[in-house]
């Protein structure tokens, strides 16, 4: 210690993954376009971190991004990743084409709840059924946020949105159950409140050959939190909730509203109503589509 005070005591050290992010490379900062309290920043940074740490080959991991708020994640993810913005809901189909045209690739699909479970539900079911080698991340903020907070297929019962002003009364889609029913070999759900777990699942999915589905529960303060109270959910009906108008309050709510899969086994359906069950639901590797197709090619070419 020389005893001289640092010249700029408030200057923060540069973020270790700043230069690796697309925005950091182009603009010199993360250039995040997300609202305060949004969870997509966490996901984007985790993607960059894993892309860098795992030394993923950008040429073999094309990133297919669907349409939603999270489309802006392209500024946060690794600058070397080759990114395609697909049409609303069609990202799994584009990834299928990529994988089959170049079987060495493993596409990474970013998709949202409205994207993957709403408009693109069919493509999602069939990519899981075929078991095409790719990683699908479903960002579930239980609302259509980009268009201004309309009810989504995943909106919780009793929640308010701009198209369900008198509370949501439709049943919700469960992305994990859908993926399990469609036959995806690796299915997991976690939240942005558990970033370490998310990183663990991400790494596991990258090493697994086949369709991996990771649903990530993420907060939307602007359109979901501000309109809803933290007593959302059957269990807390008697409580006096408060408006979830900050990221912290929403993260608290997500943590409170998620149940570990081991715990959920001992709970009744009523207790689990409106809850998010988190954990790994299935890990059963099975024959992958492009491998099976290679066998077909061999037969067609006159081999055995």
């Amino acid at each position: 210690m020389s005893g001289i005070a640092p010249m700029f005591p408030n200057e923060k050290p540069e973020h270790p993954y700043l230069q690796q992010s697309y925005g950091g490379k182009v603009f010199g900062n993360f250039a995040s376009l997300f609202c305060g309290g949004c969870g997509y920043g966490i996901i984007g940074q985790i993607f960059t971190r894993i892309f860098e740490d795992e030394k993923l080959d950008p040429k073999l991991h094309p990133t297919v991004i669907g349409i939603g708020c999270y489309s802006q994640i392209m500024l946060l993810v690794h600058e070397a990743a080759q990114k395609v913005l697909a049409l609303h809901g069609r990202a799994p189909a584009v990834a299928t084409g990529m994988k089959m045209a170049n079987p060495k690739m493993k596409p990474i699909v970013f998709s949202g709840d409205g994207d993957c479970l709403g408009i693109g539900g069919n493509h999602f079911i069939h990519i899981c059924r075929r078991n095409v080698d790719c990683l699908i991340m479903i960002f579930n903020n239980s609302i259509y946020a980009m268009t201004g907070g309309q009810g989504a297929p995943t909106t919780l019962y009793g929640a308010k949105s701009t198209t369900t002003p008198y509370t949501m009364f439709e049943n919700r889609t469960d992305g994990v159950k859908l993926a399990l029913a469609a036959g995806a070999p690796y299915v997991a759900r976690t939240t942005v409140a558990h970033p370490r777990t998310l990183m663990k699942y991400f790494r596991k999915a990258l090493r697994h050959k086949g369709t991996s589905v990771i649903e990530i529960i993420t907060p939307c303060v602007t359109y979901f939190g501000r309109k809803n109270l933290s007593n959302l959910g059957e269990e807390y009906k008697g409580e006096k909730g408060e408006k979830m108008d900050t990221g912290g309050k929403m993260i608290d709510w997500i943590k409170r509203n998620s149940v570990r899969i081991n715990q959920a086994k001992f709970m009744t359906d009523e207790e689990l109503f409106n809850k998010y069950i988190i954990g790994e639901f299935r890990y059963e590797p099975k024959p992958e589509y492009s491998d099976e197709y290679a066998k077909i090619q061999k037969i067609a070419m006159g081999g055995k």
Partner: peptide, 25 residues
């Protein structure tokens, strides 16, 4: 050595076609 896929619907088939075209097929 090519690939012919029967997709789940027309939307998926055209999207898989552009996906394949993007990677050089």
């Amino acid at each position: 050595g090519g690939c012919c896929m029967q997709m789940e619907d027309e939307l998926a088939s055209i999207n898989s076609v552009i996906g394949a075209s993007l990677v050089g097929a």
